[in-house]
């Protein structure tokens, strides 16, 4: 669906922080704010947000998922855009809300309107705000994992690579099978931990084989899964959300490390 570009020079963006960023890695949220402000957006963070409801939705708990979705829709009414630093959550907002709330004409219309203004962070910066480069520096070789929902639901592939190419000192080396699932799958990794492990083992083997120092991706869930596995395997690999590098905010210790431990 073609999204309408608003004419204003400085649209007001409601940041959908995502529950994982909120709880585990707020620095990704601040990186997102910086990038959005660099793209001439006014950023606000509605207090009434928690989680998009995806865990309930994918567990078959439609009633709770609906309630959470309606809360989220209500929290972001009045903003020009809703932007999330996660392909998975953004996919939920823009693809699954209309389905989840489609059975009642009132909620269907609200969900549609909401979905039409909901974006994943990096694709929003590039596709909607026309961002071509970032003002950031990162000395090192990185590899990039394409998270599934971002890639296949939202078509996010070139946008992060385009912006990463503008980071001074950064060299991107693609790993094998960058487009293949890391085995996180939300609650999947808890329900079927051994299968999830077999999948992430293949992913960490590909990451390690890439001979880079740093792994980036756009979804914190996948990043925690891969970082957790890499650290259990004793690998020295810096793992970060792509927004941190694009915003030039890499002072915080990498995921799963303390300062100086990466």
């Amino acid at each position: 669906m073609a999204k309408i570009k608003t004419p204003e020079d400085s649209p007001t963006v409601g940041l959908f922080v995502t529950c994982l960023v909120d709880l585990i890695r707020p620095s990704v949220g601040f990186a997102a704010v910086k990038l959005l402000e660099d793209a001439d957006c006014n950023v606000e963070v509605p207090l009434a947000q928690t989680c998009c409801g995806q865990p309930a939705y994918n567990s078959g708990d439609k009633a709770d998922a609906r309630e959470l979705a309606l809360n989220t829709v209500a929290a972001f009414e009045g903003y020009d855009y809703v932007v999330a630093p996660s392909g998975s959550c953004a996919g939920m907002l823009s693809h699954h809300y209309p389905e989840l709330l489609g059975d009642n004409p009132d909620t269907a219309a609200r969900a549609r309107a909401f979905a039409d203004k909901a974006y994943e962070l990096v694709s929003f910066l590039v596709d909607v705000r026309g961002m071509k480069e970032v003002d950031a520096e990162y000395m090192g070789q990185v590899t990039y994992h394409d998270s599934c929902a971002g890639l296949r639901e939202l078509g996010i592939k070139d946008q992060p690579r385009k912006l990463l190419a503008s980071v001074q000192g950064l060299k991107l080396d693609e790993m094998e099978e960058a487009e293949i699932c890391c085995g996180f799958g939300g609650t999947f990794c808890i329900k079927y931990p051994d299968i999830s492990n077999a999948i992430v083992e293949k992913k960490t083997a590909n990451i390690t084989a890439s001979k880079t120092d740093c792994l980036l991706a756009g979804d914190l869930g996948c990043l925690m899964n891969m970082a957790g596995k890499l650290s259990r395997e004793g690998r020295q690999m810096e793992v970060r959300h792509v927004a941190e590098v694009l915003a030039g905010m890499t002072d915080e210790p990498a995921i799963g490390t303390k300062g100086g431990d990466s």
């Binding site: 585990i24 707020p26 990794c189 999830s196």
Partner: peptide, 16 residues
């Protein structure tokens, strides 16, 4: 289920 196979990254501190 998580920590059987991998480490769990700790939160940074306060919530966003």
């Amino acid at each position: 289920g998580w920590t059987r196979h991998r480490d769990l990254p700790a939160p940074q501190g306060k919530t966003f």
